[in-house]
């Protein structure tokens, strides 16, 4: 099997990946205005305050949209074809790219989903299953 991509872990996003290792999906919330977002960044994109804190997500969300790959842009995904990639909005507001653990025929926009953290070779990923 070809080498899979690995997360680009930085001092800014490390808490996100560390939390996944202990089974928690987290997002950032601004200590000044309360705005919530992913992916990790240094400043709040709403009020620009540099006071991001980390909060554990409920793990509930809904599907905004999804696609199904029939062609592997990276050789590491060739043996997973066809596979889906989705946008999920968490109940707390932040959106993220993820995979849905379901048959393609069962997917639909606005369907509720719950997080299922899966262990990859050297890191853990937040995927979702239908609620």
């Amino acid at each position: 099997m070809s080498e899979m991509p690995e997360p680009g872990i930085t001092p800014v996003n490390q808490p996100f990946w560390t939390a996944l290792e202990r089974g928690e999906l987290t997002f950032q919330r601004c200590g000044s205005c309360g705005g919530a977002w992913l992916p990790a960044r240094e400043e709040c994109p709403r009020c620009l305050a540099a006071e991001p804190g980390w909060e554990v997500a409920s793990g509930r969300g809904r599907i905004i949209s999804w696609v199904v790959y029939h062609h592997a842009a990276h050789p590491g995904f060739a043996d997973r074809l066809p596979y889906n990639v989705a946008v999920v909005e968490l109940d707390e507001g932040p959106r993220l790219i993820t995979n849905i653990l379901a048959d393609e025929g069962d997917l639909g926009i606005e369907l509720p989903v719950v997080v299922r953290i899966e262990r990859e070779a050297t890191f853990s990923l937040p995927r979702f299953s239908l609620a």
Partner: peptide, 15 residues
């Protein structure tokens, strides 16, 4: 890949 999401297989402009 767009952003840091290549770990999910999220690659390319067509997607």
């Amino acid at each position: 890949a767009w952003g840091e999401d290549d770990v999910y297989g999220w690659f390319g402009t067509p997607a």
